[in-house]
């Protein structure tokens, strides 16, 4: 069975059918792209996947576990992490602490132990700091550890968002328009980062993107959404050459 299986997913907002009969199946280790015109329902799919919205019908399975209708924090614990279209970092906190918040559920100690600094506080904090530095090192961001996240350059903020998502130890990583607002150089660096995350962490990645260079460069499989419905699905080149997709989205 595939790592992520979505069957017949649908949701309406009032009279608007935002997503209809959406099916997808993502294999473990795959780099999967979700593309389509603005307003096609791509981000809505992500929000359904992460429990921001509850689907009207359909089912979501991650690694065989039914996640349909679960709350955001439970879905995070089940192993789905995401980044956001408009970057959402903890701006006033240091870069290191941003990653530590991602590690929150994996290094537990109580509030009481934290205030009175009992032995478990020191032990856990030490492990947590080491792990956070390790992640920052993997992403080449160690030098920024003490900077406020808000003061990082744009590309680094994106990277930090991915690092923070990886800190939750997900099985599936969702990237919502990671290349939005990036220049070609930054996009190229981002492509390397995404590939690196897949290879280094053996990660499965589902991403939304408008930048066709990025999509055709790294995605192995694509699903095209249009007006909330699946327009095409399959291998990247095959989908991008589909006349219907070209007419609806890519243009002549």
């Amino acid at each position: 069975m595939a790592l992520l299986e979505i069957k017949n997913l649908g949701i309406s907002f009032g009279g608007l059918r935002a997503v209809n009969a959406f099916d997808i199946s993502v294999e473990k280790g795959q780099l999967y792209g979700l593309i389509g015109p603005n307003g096609a329902g791509k981000t809505t799919v992500f929000n359904l996947l992460t429990g921001v919205y509850t689907p009207d019908e359909g089912a979501i399975f991650l690694d065989g576990v039914n996640l349909t209708g679960k709350k955001t924090i439970d879905i995070c614990r089940a192993g789905i992490a995401r980044t956001f279209q408009n970057i959402r970092l903890f701006g006033d906190m240091p870069v290191l602490d941003n990653v530590k918040v991602g590690l929150h559920n994996h290094y537990p100690y109580s509030t009481f132990e934290g205030i009175f600094r009992l032995p478990r506080y020191y032990r856990t904090e030490k492990e947590m700091t080491a792990r956070a530095y390790e992640l920052l090192r993997v992403f080449g961001m160690e030098e920024y550890a003490d900077h406020a996240a808000r003061n990082l350059p744009y590309g680094q903020q994106r990277k930090l968002e991915i690092a923070r998502a990886m800190a939750t130890e997900p099985k599936l990583l969702l990237l919502d328009e990671p290349a939005a607002g990036m220049n070609p150089n930054e996009t190229k660096e981002l492509m390397d980062t995404i590939r690196f995350v897949r290879d280094h962490f053996d990660m499965t990645i589902l991403l939304i993107e408008h930048d066709m260079k990025l999509v055709s460069g790294i995605c192995e499989k694509l699903t095209v959404l249009n007006f909330g419905e699946v327009l095409a699905q399959g291998g990247t080149q095959e989908v991008l050459n589909d006349p219907e997709v070209i007419a609806a989205y890519l243009g002549e």
Binding site: I73, L89, F90, M93, V101, A167
Partner: peptide
């Protein structure tokens, strides 16, 4: 503080 800085992101990392 993570909730203060960005509630949606905090929720997404399981807070």
């Amino acid at each position: 503080m993570a909730i203060r800085d960005n509630r949606i992101a905090a929720e997404s990392v399981g807070i």
